[in-house]
């Protein structure tokens, strides 16, 4: 009769230091097939004239040259993307932080309130929410009906090129729940003795917030900033479903241009070039942010140094 030790020894014939690979194998396979392979092939296709159903033909930098010099849609799409990012990222973070501060209070039913505020984020990027938004902000939608009932002049939320971008940004900002949860966790981790010391020293609420709370939660601010920046630069769903990039391309972000070039005009090589430009912008923005972080992010362990 085998002992438990013998059986265990037989089962674990893979060296212990290699067992980790076995555990991450499902992810590894997924990463290689679904991420790394498309990543590399898209780089190759970005240098090709590649239309759907035909063979890819290498053309060097032609796609990039055309995008930067001759494509009438590229620069407006780039500015629309940057505008979307500039509006949604600070908007979302500020709102998330304000709500997290409110949620950090010890009041009755706070858990229920937190859940309710988190719900919009569960629908993040969903087509259904975008369709709902489209109906609500329609000229004859519920928002204008509400404004009208208050005697406030109505707006063409989706029909005016000056306002349409703000409308889709509002939806993005409304989905602040995940950032809020992270802020809330960070706020709860701020040592109470710091506030007590500040109180004894006679510091006011605002001074305490800017000199204790903000530095203490700065690592989470950096994390949220990075995640939201990456998400905003890749935006697609709201621009596609709510406005289809209009009116007059005012919400035609790079993510949508990439989709239209690839799947409506069947120019996959050209769309791949756009995707690599988006990737480069994200990479550049991330590196810049990481580099700046040493100046404003406070780590308890001095950043591991």
């Amino acid at each position: 009769m085998q002992t438990t030790k013998e059986r265990t020894g037989k089962r674990l014939s893979i060296p212990r230091d290699k067992q980790g690979f076995l555990y991450v194998l499902p992810w590894l396979i997924g990463f290689l097939i679904l991420q790394l392979y498309p990543f590399i092939t898209s780089l190759y296709y970005s240098f090709c004239d590649y239309s759907i159903l035909s063979e890819a033909r290498f053309i060097g930098f032609d796609n990039y040259v055309k995008l930067f010099t001759r494509d009438r849609e590229f620069w407006p799409a780039m500015f629309a993307t940057l505008r979307f990012t500039a509006m949604t990222v600070p908007g979302k973070l500020i709102l998330a932080l304000i709500v997290a501060l409110l949620m950090n209070q010890k009041i009755r039913g706070i858990n229920l309130i937190r859940t309710i505020y988190y719900i919009p984020s569960l629908f993040g990027g969903s087509v259904a929410v975008c369709a709902l938004w489209k109906l609500m902000f329609n000229d004859k939608g519920v928002i204008n009906a509400f404004l009208q009932s208050l005697g406030i002049p109505t707006l063409s939320w989706l029909g005016s090129p000056d306002i349409a971008m703000t409308t889709i940004c509002l939806m993005e900002i409304w989905q602040f729940g995940s950032s809020m949860i992270l802020f809330l966790a960070a706020l709860k981790n701020v040592p109470q003795h710091l506030y007590e010391a500040a109180e004894i020293d006679g510091a006011g609420k605002i001074r305490t917030f800017f000199h204790i709370t903000i530095p203490q939660i700065s690592p989470i601010i950096l994390f949220n900033l990075l995640m939201q920046l990456i998400q905003a630069l890749q935006n697609f769903t709201s621009a596609m479903v709510i406005t289809r990039g209009g009116p007059v391309k005012s919400t035609y972000v790079l993510g949508l241009k990439l989709y239209m070039d690839g799947f409506s005009n069947y120019k996959m090589g050209y769309a791949s070039a756009t995707s690599w430009i988006i990737f480069t912008v994200i990479l550049f923005a991330t590196l810049l942010l990481m580099r700046s972080s040493s100046a404003w992010v406070h780590y308890d362990d001095n950043g591991g140094n």
Partner: peptide
């Protein structure tokens, strides 16, 4: 109708214009 109205019923959603 004005363009600001019609862009809200683009493509195949034209029949949903109130």
């Amino acid at each position: 109708a004005p363009i600001a109205t019609m862009v809200q019923y683009a493509g195949d959603s034209i029949q949903s214009d109130p």
